[in-house]
């Protein structure tokens, strides 16, 4: 059994967008490749609109990929077998308010994946499994008959996690699972993710924009910019020795909750805004905001290359 659980190869996800009379492709994810090992957490960070959520959704075939391959446990994931595959990969969504059906009780929400995959033989078994899952994520048995609106944001996120865990998945895509929560509640949910990983050995693709949280929870981190991965490295390595100029400025922009550290740091401010993905710059997408941009950056897009120790960077100048 190899260590690699999920392998994404040259994944592309283009959305058709009408622009005047023409339909042009919006390159939400453009040639992305990475792997996730068993029981590992890969953090995926980037600004809004960089395609990180699309990557997560495309892996689960919530969108049909334009091209590229997704291998789960060595087996290709296709629209034909995805129904079966979702027994092993699940998703936790960002918004705990809209991702739960308001007309279903907690019991039915968590029970639905069990029903879909015919995992329980009897009603009694189903009920027991649901209660076990609920206690796993820190919900009381008495909550089973309640509806989603009766819960707070943090509790709803727990329901969403219990639903994802119902099928005993090996891999969960966590799409901004804590960003809608208050700081004091965030820590509760983050700890739960970590405990579940220790107990069940589940791997996460942890998508978030809060870099401190991602650094805390991830083993490795991938940084995305305009549909491409610009850097992947071990979490500590990435934070200590960022190589790509985008990663550098992204990290320097994070306000650190420690007055001495944050005030002694120098911010590398980026000029302007992210270019529109409909009108991408030629060559390296970041060159319009990059301090080091040269002529070559405009001509050709740099590929992700290994700079030693699993530190991959896509930049001509580093």
């Amino acid at each position: 059994m190899s260590d690699v659980l999920l392998e994404v190869r040259n994944l592309k996800q283009y959305f058709p967008v009408k622009s005047g009379f023409k339909t042009v492709p919006l390159k939400a994810v453009d040639d992305v490749s990475f792997t996730v090992n068993r029981g590992e957490t890969l953090g995926l960070v980037g600004e809004s609109g960089c395609g990180k959520t699309t990557v997560g959704r495309t892996i689960l075939h919530l969108y049909e990929p334009t091209s590229g391959e997704i291998l789960f446990d060595g087996q290709p994931v296709t629209s034909g077998n995805i129904g079966h595959m979702r027994k092993q990969m699940q998703m936790v969504f960002q918004d705990p308010y809209s991702s739960l059906d308001p007309r279903m009780t907690v019991e039915d929400i968590i029970g639905e994946p069990l029903d879909v995959h015919h995992l329980c033989k009897s009603r009694k078994e189903r009920r027991e499994k649901i209660l076990e899952l609920m206690s796993f994520v820190g919900l009381n048995a008495e909550h089973a008959r309640r509806y989603a609106h009766e819960f707070s944001g943090g509790q709803r996120q727990r329901i969403g996690i219990a639903r994802a865990l119902a099928v005993d998945p090996k891999f969960i895509v966590c799409d901004e699972p804590v960003s809608a929560l208050d700081v004091s509640i965030q820590a509760q949910v983050i700890n739960m993710f970590e405990e579940l990983q220790e107990k069940l050995g589940v791997a996460y693709l942890f998508i978030a924009h809060d870099l401190l949280v991602v650094h805390h929870i991830s083993d490795r981190i991938a940084v995305m910019y305009l549909g491409k991965i610009v850097e992947i490295a071990d979490a500590d390595e990435l934070n200590e020795r960022p190589m790509h100029p985008y990663t550098e400025s992204l990290l320097s922009a994070v306000p650190i909750p420690d007055p001495d550290i944050t005030r002694s740091r120098k911010r590398i401010l980026l000029e302007g805004d992210v270019p529109s993905p409909l009108n991408m710059p030629t060559g390296c997408a970041f060159r319009t905001r990059c301090r080091f941009a040269t002529e070559q950056c405009g001509k050709e897009c740099p590929a992700l290359t290994d700079r030693g120790g699993g530190h991959f960077v896509a930049c001509w100048n580093k």
Partner: peptide, 24 residues
Amino acid sequence: KGLLRSIPNVNNMKKKLVPISGTP
């Protein structure tokens, strides 16, 4: 104190977070 313990510690990233129990 609880708030400061519940956010990732910059000097020791892998240190476990200590959440504030309960709800607001």
